[in-house]
Amino acid sequence: MKKVNAILSLLFAALICSTTFGCEPKKKTKTIYAQALTEKPIANNTVKIALLLDTSNSMDGLINQAKAQLWDIVNKFTHAKCGNEAKPNLQIALYQYGNDALSSKEGYIQQVLNFSGDLDEISEKLFSLTTNGGEEYCGEVIQTSLKQLEWGNNQDNLKLIFIAGNEPFTQGKLNYEDAVTNAKEKDVIVNTIFCGNYEQGINSKWKKGATLTGGEYIAINHNKKIVHIDTPYDEVIIKLNSKLNTTYISYGSLGASKHKMQSTQDSNAMEMEEAVAVKRAVSKSSRLYKNKNWDLVDAADDASFDVSKVKKEELPKELKEKSSAEIKSYIKEKKTERVKIQNEIQELNKKRNAYIAKNQKENAKGELENAMLRAIKKQAAAKNYKWEE
Rank of each mutant, 00 (worst) to 15 (best):
K311H: 05
I229F: 07
V112F: 06
K205F: 12
Q342W: 09
I237V: 07
Y33C: 05
E106W: 02
V276L: 06
L11P: 07
L296Y: 09
K365I: 00
E344V: 00
L129I: 06
K40L: 11
Q143A: 15
N89M: 05
N182Q: 14
L373F: 03
Q96H: 00
S283M: 13
V307Q: 07
Y176V: 01
M1V: 10
Y176N: 06
N114T: 12
A101S: 11
G255M: 02
E167G: 06
L212I: 11
L288Y: 04
D306W: 05
Q111M: 09
Q346S: 12
R352L: 04
N45P: 01
H228S: 08
I49L: 13
K340V: 01
S145Y: 05
N89P: 00
A382D: 12
E333R: 03
I327K: 02
E24M: 10
D100Y: 05
A34F: 13
T144F: 03
K351H: 08
N182A: 14
T246N: 02
N221S: 04
D100K: 14
L296R: 11
N223C: 11
L62F: 10
V190W: 15
A354G: 04
E235Q: 08
A210C: 14
A357P: 02
A281S: 14
E177D: 02
E321S: 00
Q69W: 06
S145N: 07
S304V: 07
L149I: 04
V4D: 13
P168Q: 11
E167M: 09
N221R: 02
Q200T: 06
I238P: 01
A43S: 07
K27C: 07
I42V: 15
G215W: 12
Y251C: 06
E140S: 15
E140H: 13
L15R: 05
D60M: 11
T170L: 00
I163W: 13
I356L: 04
L319V: 00
I73C: 07
F115V: 08
F115A: 13
K76T: 11
V310N: 06
L296P: 12
I356N: 05
W151Y: 00
K225Q: 11
L62M: 15
L373V: 00
L158K: 03
K279D: 13
C138D: 03
Q96C: 02
N241F: 09
